[in-house]
C-alpha cells in the first residue's frame, strides 16, 4: 500500500490501515525515542503516545512532508517533552533527597545500553550515550537521528525543519562537544 492511500484510509478511520501503519513504523518510532530518552520503558511509553496522537490527529496531516518525517517530528517532540518532565522530577527528587527521602535511581540513572550495538562496542557506546545526554537539545537530536536512526543530513534537516548546512553545523558542534566531554572523562579515569 502506498503512503497516500494509507493516509487516506487512516483519515477514514480504517482499523486495518492503522494496524499496518503501526507495524510498519513501530520500530522506527521506538528506536528514535530510545536514542533520545535512553530508557526502554520510557521509549515504549513515547511510542504509544506517538501512535495515539497519530490516531487522533491524522486528519491534520496535509501531506506537505513524508509521513515518516511527520512521525519523526512527533516522536522527537514527545521525547523532549518527557525529558523536560523528568528533569523537573529529578530536581524535585534532589530536593527531597536533601530532606532524607533518598531515591538514587531518579537522581543517577544507570548507564544506558542500546540493544542494537555490537557486543564488542557496548562499553564504548554506553560511554558515548552518556556524553550525548550532556549535549544541548538541538545537537543531541541531530546527532541521535543521524547516528542512531541512520538518517542522512537531508532527512535530519526535514525532521528538524532546518537547512542542511545548519544540520552540518549542529553535527560539527556536537562532535566537538562530545570530544571535550570524553577528554574530561579520560583524564578522570586514567
Amino acid at each position: 500500500m502506498d503512503e497516500r492511500t494509507l493516509v487516506d484510509l487512516l483519515k477514514q478511520g480504517d482499523e486495518s490501515a492503522f494496524r499496518e501503519m503501526v507495524e510498519t513504523w513501530q520500530d522506527m518510532v521506538y528506536n528514535t525515542a530510545l536514542g533520545i530518552v535512553q530508557v526502554p520503558s520510557d521509549a515504549e511509553d513515547i511510542a504509544q503516545e506517538v501512535f495515539v496522537q497519530v490516531y487522533q490527529s491524522v486528519s491534520s496531516f496535509k501531506g506537505d512532508s513524508k509521513f515518516s518525517t511527520w512521525l519523526y517530528r512527533i516522536t522527537v517532540t514527545k521525547s523532549l517533552d518527557l525529558e523536560r518532565r523528568k528533569k523537573r522530577k529529578k530536581r524535585f527528587a534532589f530536593v527531597k533527597s536533601l530532606f532524607g527521602d533518598d531515591n538514587q535511581a531518579a537522581i543517577h540513572p544507570p548507564d544506558f545500553q542500546h540493544p542494537g550495538v555490537q557486543l564488542d562496542k557496548k562499553e564504548d557506546a554506553a560511554m558515548l550515550f552518556k556524553a550525548i545526554k550532556e549535549l544541548p537539545e538541538n545537537q543531541r537530536i541531530a546527532f541521535t537521528l543521524h547516528k542512531v536512526e541512520g538518517l542522512s543530513y537531508q532527512e535530519v534537516s526535514d525532521v528538524m525543519n532546518a537547512t542542511v548546512s545548519s544540520v552540518e553545523s549542529l553535527m560539527h558542534r556536537a562532535k566537538v562537544n562530545l570530544r571535550k566531554s570524553l577528554e574530561q572523562h579520560y583524564r578522570q579515569t586514567r
Binding site: Q26, Y30, A47, Q48, H114, V117, D124, V148, G150, R179
Partner: peptide
C-alpha cells in the same frame, strides 16, 4: 580512544519495540 568511542555507534541496529506492541 575518543575516535573509537565516537565511532562505536557505527553499524548500530535498530532497536525493536517489545512484542505485542499493537
Amino acid at each position: 580512544w575518543m575516535d573509537r568511542v565516537l565511532n562505536s555507534l557505527d553499524g548500530v541496529e535498530r532497536a525493536q519495540a517489545q512484542p505485542w506492541f499493537y
